[in-house]
Design a binder for these strands. Structure first.
Lengths: 345, 345
DNA sequence: TAGAGCCTGGACAACGTTGTCAGATGCGAG
DNA sequence: CTCGCATCTGACAACGTTGTCCAGGCTCTA
């Protein structure tokens, strides 16, 4: 009775606690705790009374208090660049699945490729005492994480390595993938090949550029500056860059696109041109097989990246002190037509 | 000195607290709290000493304890079906942006369209005392949320309404969109039109089916059972369903696809056929404009759904007691070619 | 029937933070 | 020189949970 009144009269936001449950069930506080956590040492009769009280009051354990007491939050943080990017959806989902298998929840944040925002997010997650962090770095200096890692926050970087600190990282073989993709174009007779990619301060972008250069060099083809466009990602500028290389005095006959967004725009530009242009893109894109010609890509497995990173994270959490490791996953060239076009003109 | 030793010798996971900072700076506990929270009433000199101690120890405030004291967690939960689905990426991102603007973090979970898993996730989020919930329901009975909502957890449903309870919901106009899409096909001369969609227990699927039926009825066209395929989503079965309706004794000349995944598979099937088949899909898909013919779709704005829901959530949190509302966002027919093909045969 | 041992239940402290309140300090005015 | 006031600081309780430990009641055996 009294308890019911208390609930009813209580201000918005007041919730019953174990104490309330205990009072209503006529037992001690700790007994309620035992029932809630399925600990042994409670007679069936007592347990029933407690369960009824829980039901009646709509009690739900306050995990904040629990965390405070126990030290572990059973949650991990994932900081990525943009959840809306189709590359990160599967990655995030894969991390979530692994977390779920370990009974942990996932807190998600997008850095929008802004180093400051990355740091802000990471530190906010640390303040909540996430057990671990999976980070797709935006910045190139992660020394701010050192105290956190020392304090026991498991940390794994994905897609790009950490800057200035020694930490686990899971990568795709950007260099090898790009090199093979460009070599593929060369094997089909191209010599004037363009490269459009992101800012070289982004590790993957730099590696892919290096792969491009290496493939060209291996084939003994000198690269002209006009064939390369770096730091360009927004559709409008990619479009301009592509059109420029396709028009100049020595126009390219093939393009290597440095990521999925660039690929999409280049496909658009090429489809508007009369003369066919060969194309290989880094990252697979949906429906690539249905375009005419199909888009040849260097595919990386985003889900596998996420899974691998999360596995590694929980291995850290399971206590083994592991030396930081660099895990590189292979890429896969998927030929669909656009990369096999011969040079024209 | 003593503190340093304590830190160094401390077991894995030990972190400095405000008490440690206070001891090192030679001030009281509360003074540290004041500095950390930027409260007034601390002399610049004291503040500097405290800041130095914080720096030296690598102190970071424990938000779990803070939450326990203050009651608000500054985090909201988002339960959706599958983060890897391109429809949910932008939605999730939009919710995150709004949360960020309110200083809150986002905890994400995928229900995988399993009602039990949805409930499990939601209750886990409530146990963490998230301030609010954005839920894309998998189940059709949400009475389990009643005690939580009563206790002050702001709740908004998205994409599908809640079951058995009265709550805010933000929807796309599935019915109207589907009806218009089908009417568009009818206007282009089709009479035998197929429908492939998800299980009718999913609200959006049911609404889209209703839209299809209504459009057909409005045009005075009797619908044959063989034209409809319900509860089919995995690519293989969609493929079989599509092939069946395109082959039978009275084959359809056009297909309305109930969601993005179905649309993609149907595009595949159609592209393999000699005879052209008209197609309108619900949900936009990337590169739809580059296919030949381009794919005509009924587009909904996932980001806008997320933004609207999150806005509503924070309005609830800002204290105003609002009567539950149903907000319906319009859809947009985007014609690209596939929906304007005339009937053939 | 008394003592040993087991089982159940509860009192209490602790986790790290913030709100309350009162004490200390310094300064100016009478 | 002393009082009063404003400013700064710190002791203490509280948030809701879990771990420790002890008390009381029971059963079983000698």
């Amino acid at each position: 009775m009294a308890e019911t009144a208390r609930r009813t009269e209580s201000r918005y936001g007041n919730r019953p606690t174990m104490k309330d449950v205990a009072a209503r069930a006529g037992v001690g506080l700790k007994t309620v705790s035992r029932v809630v956590n399925g600990e042994p040492g409670v007679t069936p009769d007592t347990e029933r009374r407690v369960q009824e009280a829980i039901e009646a009051l709509g009690f739900r354990r306050n995990d904040s208090a629990r965390v405070l007491r126990k030290g572990r939050t059973a949650s991990i943080g994932l900081v990525l660049e943009d959840l809306a990017d189709p590359f990160y959806g599967p990655l995030s989902r894969a991390v979530e699945e692994v977390a779920r298998a370990h009974g942990a929840l996932l807190i998600n944040g997008s850095s929008a490729e802004d180093p400051e925002r990355e740091q802000e997010l990471v530190l906010a997650l640390c303040a909540r005492r996430v057990d671990g962090l999976v980070v797709i770095p935006a910045g190139d200096d992660h020394r701010y994480l050192e105290p956190e890692m020392k304090a026991g926050v498991a940390t794994v970087f994905v897609d790009r390595p950490a800057g200035q600190i020694d930490a686990d990282v899971v990568l795709s073989d950007s260099f090898g993938g790009a090199r093979d993709g460009v070599a593929h174009l060369i094997a089909h007779g191209h010599r004037r090949i363009g490269f459009i990619g992101d800012m070289p301060r982004i590790h993957t972008a730099a590696e892919r550029l290096r792969g491009y250069r290496t493939a060209m060099e291996d084939a003994g083809i000198p690269v002209e500056d006009a064939w390369m466009s770096l730091g360009v990602t927004d559709p409008q500028r990619v479009r301009r860059a592509a059109e420029t290389m396709l028009s100049g005095p020595s126009p390219v006959t093939a393009v290597f696109a440095g990521n999925n967004r660039v690929t999409v725009t280049v496909v658009r530009v090429i489809s508007e041109r009369a003369r066919p242009v060969a194309l290989v893109g880094f990252d697979d894109i949906e429906l690539a097989d249905l375009l005419r010609p199909g888009v040849t890509v260097v595919a990386q497995d985003a889900a596998q990246l996420g899974r691998t990173a999360a596995d590694r994270l929980f291995r850290q959490l399971d206590g083994s002190l592991l030396a930081p490791e660099r895990i590189e996953l292979p890429t896969r060239l998927i030929t669909r037509g656009s990369g096999e076009l011969p040079p024209s003109a």
